[in-house]
Design a binder for these strands. Structure first.
Length: 268
DNA sequence: GGCCAGGCTTTTC
DNA sequence: GAAAAGCATGGC
């Protein structure tokens, strides 16, 4: 294993890895985390502003990018703090960073997420990797679209993904044959990317926005699910301010984690 | 046991 | 067009 240390002030590793943006990390009893980012297995723990990564590969640059260290979150939080309603969510959930995940993995994972819950999403994603991924140090990679494009729904039955299996296959085929081009979406506007992704069976606005935010790092993407509807009703009944549109994806993550973790029992 | 889960597609009114 | 049903599976 290779030891890599990153310095990330005002950061919460736990909130970042458990807030529902990724599905391949598990918390250990000692508070560290084990799992995968792309094909990189790692054990990660946080000590203050130090993030200690024991990685299967000597690739500090990869982890620098994964934890999005080139984005200034302190600046984003200062801007968002102008809105009184954001202050509680920032104080409670402001340690979250938007991970720069692989686009295909994020797209596929959030197709699986629909009408589903996070523990079961993790189970399906785990079985997908073990059944169809490639062996890498520490476990299995997330399967490439080309690997899944030749599969049938019956092949995916062991995943117990239910009705989502045919959506996974449609997405894999359209990415593998170029109908959907992640490289093109990466250079497109969020609106254009949404339209392209929604060509996939089983991808609506919510899943497309999740893929754009978590897989393509489009910080103006803004997925709204049942939790975000609750949060917006509580904090922004007149809608999220358009002045903050460029970083509303960061705000979304604070609001989502806050409402799920801290406000569930509070009556509106 | 019915309800719900980071929804979407299909059918029906 | 809008609203409702249907969809697989599992946890509570």
């Amino acid at each position: 294993m290779h030891e890599i240390t990153l310095t990330i002030p005002h950061f919460s590793l736990r909130d970042t890895l458990l807030c529902g943006q990724c599905f391949r990390w598990e918390e250990n009893p000692d508070g560290s985390f084990s799992g995968f980012a792309g094909a990189h297995y790692a054990d990660i723990r946080q000590a203050g502003s130090q993030v200690l990564i024991a990685s299967s590969q000597a690739d500090a640059g990869f982890w620098h990018a994964y934890f999005d260290l080139d984005t200034d979150y302190e600046d984003a939080k200062r801007r968002l703090y102008r809105y009184r309603a954001m202050r509680g969510p920032i104080d409670r959930a402001g340690g979250i960073r938007l991970l720069r995940q692989d686009p295909w993995e994020a797209l596929c994972s959030f197709i699986i997420s629909q009408n589903n819950n996070i523990p079961r999403i993790k189970g399906i994603v785990g079985r997908l990797c073990e059944g169809f991924g490639s062996p890498v140090p520490g476990g299995f990679s997330f399967p490439a679209p080309e690997r899944l494009a030749g599969c049938t729904a019956d092949d995916l039955a062991p995943l117990r993904a239910g009705f989502r299996a045919k959506y996974i296959l449609d997405a894999a085929k359209k990415v593998a044959d170029g109908t959907i081009d992640p490289a093109r979406i990466a250079h497109s506007s969020t609106g254009e990317g949404e339209a392209e992704l929604m060509q996939i069976l089983g991808v609506g606005v919510k899943v497309a926005q999740c893929a754009l935010l978590y897989g393509f790092h489009k910080l103006d993407a803004f997925p709204v699910d049942v939790w975000m509807k609750k949060s917006l009703a509580l904090y922004f009944p007149n809608g999220f301010p358009k002045q903050a549109k460029k970083i509303q994806g960061i705000a979304q993550q604070f609001l989502f984690h806050d409402i799920r973790t801290y406000q569930e029992e509070r009556s509106g």
